[in-house]
Structures are given as C-alpha cells and as structure tokens.
Amino acid sequence: MNERNPTLRERQREETRRAIQTCAVRLFTDRGYDRVTVAEIAEAAGVSSMTVYRHFPTKEDLVLVEQPVRHIAELVASSPASFPLVRRVGSALVDAATALTRREVDEPAAGERFLLDCLRLMIATPALRARHLDSQYAMQQAIVEALGEDAADQDDAFLARAAISACLAAMHMALTRWAEDDGRTPLPDLITRALTASFGDTAVVRRPGS
C-alpha cells in the first residue's frame, strides 16, 4: 500500500513544529531547562506563545523526541513468531536505532546531534525523566497491541509485558551511555551490548541492510 503524501499545510505545520523544538532545545541546552520560558522560545522561533502551545501542550513536550513507536511495533509484529519475544523486540530496537542515527560521515549528523541534546536534557531534568518513562510505557503498550493474538491470553500478556519492559530498560541504559559518551559509540552497538548483557548472545538479530 502506498503511503499518502503530506499536503502543503501538513508540511508547513511540521516545519513550524521542528523550528520551535529546535529553538527550544538550543535555549534549554545553553541556559538550562528551568531558566527558559515558553515566551522566550516563541520569540526565538518567530511565533506566538499560542502557536508553541498548539504544537506542544506542555513545556516538557518540547524536549520529548517522537519515538518511532509504530515502526518498532510493526517490526516486532512482522518478525518470526517462532523467535523468543526478547529477540523480536531487541532486534526491532536495534534496527530502529540504526535508521534513526544513520550517518554518512564519522561526525554525528544534525538530527543525531539534536537527539543527543534532548537525551542530555532528559537525564539532567527530573520532570523530563518522568515524561520519558511515560513514553516508554506507551511503546510497551504499542508492542503488546501489535502482537495481537500472540499475547491474547492474560498470562501471556503479563509475560509479554515483562519481556518488553526488560528490553526497553536495556535500551534506556544504552541511550544514557550514548548521551554521556557524546555519541562516539554507535547507538545500535550500545543497545546490542546492553541486550546481550541482559539476555545473552542470541538476543538480537540484525536484519539485512541494518
């Protein structure tokens, strides 16, 4: 099925959203999260405060990176059902990280640098750490729903959530290390190492081209 191309209005909306978030993260990084107001972000982005709130209902939302939740859930759902769930989830997380941080040269790309800045802010700011945990729960739920009948039984659903939570915890540790290391070690490698330390050498299978 062919995906629908975004309309001009949708592209403009996304450009505005990206510009606001870029300004916000730059100001937060330079001056500290608590010292920057939404009004200052709006002024830097050349929009009104109302426009900022239209795109980002709370100040915390300005730092949250939209995770490829649907993509990860689809990767898990499309992986062989005969594989252990940890292997299915772990491989999907590594593949998604590979796509998200793919670079053409040794230096981090602009998008990767932005992600690193967001992660450092989340690590340093208690309110943002709490929101990050919320996003992890949302990803867990999306993966469980994508499994469908594979986790239809109540006990199966419990075991699935336990396995998924453990994988996401390993990914969280890898993200933290990646931010502290300023992106010098590729994120997919860190996630693979974290998953391997938790579940063994067969926890991850790289798909061709990843």
Rank of each mutant, 00 (worst) to 15 (best):
R9Y: 01
A162C: 06
A179W: 12
A96N: 02
D106E: 10
A97Q: 02
A194K: 07
D95Y: 09
F56K: 10
V63E: 10
D134M: 14
V76C: 09
M173E: 06
V89L: 05
L128R: 01
F28I: 04
A174V: 14
N2I: 09
L27W: 06
A169T: 13
Y137G: 06
L8D: 14
R13L: 06
R206C: 02
A142F: 11
D106W: 07
L159G: 00
P186N: 05
L168P: 14
A24H: 04
M171F: 00
E180R: 15
F199C: 07
R207Q: 14
L93P: 11
R207T: 14
T185H: 15
A146C: 03
D189T: 13
M50Q: 14
D182R: 14
R129W: 07
R207G: 14
A151M: 11
R54Q: 14
R18W: 04
I41G: 07
M173D: 13
E14T: 10
G111W: 10
A92L: 13
V65A: 01
A127H: 03
L147H: 06
A194E: 12
R193A: 08
R120Q: 14
Y53V: 04
L128Q: 00
V105D: 09
S210F: 11
T192E: 15
D182S: 12
T51V: 13
T29H: 02
R113D: 01
F28V: 01
L8K: 14
A157W: 02
Q67L: 15
S198Q: 15
E74C: 09
A19P: 09
L62D: 05
L128V: 03
E3R: 07
R184W: 12
P68E: 04
A109I: 14
V65G: 03
A92G: 06
D153G: 15
I41P: 13
G90I: 07
R35S: 09
A170P: 15
E15D: 03
F28T: 00
Q12M: 12
A160Q: 13
Y33H: 10
R206G: 01
T196H: 05
A24M: 08
G209T: 03
I20V: 08
D189E: 15
A152T: 14
E180T: 09
A166K: 07
M122T: 02
L187D: 07
V86E: 02
T7Y: 07
L100N: 00
R102F: 09
T192H: 05
A97W: 04
A169N: 10
A169V: 15
F114L: 15
V89G: 00
S82Y: 02
M50G: 09
N2Q: 07
V86K: 00
D106V: 07
K59T: 07
A44D: 12
M50D: 10
V25E: 02
E40F: 00
V47M: 03
P188L: 12
A99R: 15
R177S: 12
R87Q: 15
R87P: 13
V86I: 11
R54C: 04
P6W: 02
D156I: 01
P208Y: 05
F114C: 01
G32Y: 03
S82K: 07
A99T: 11
R207S: 15
L119S: 08
F158L: 13
M171W: 12
G90Y: 08
A166F: 07
R193F: 06
F158G: 00
L64P: 11
A151R: 08
L8A: 07
A130G: 03
T98R: 12
I72Y: 01
A151F: 09
G90M: 04
S79F: 08
A24R: 01
D61W: 06
E145P: 01
S48H: 04
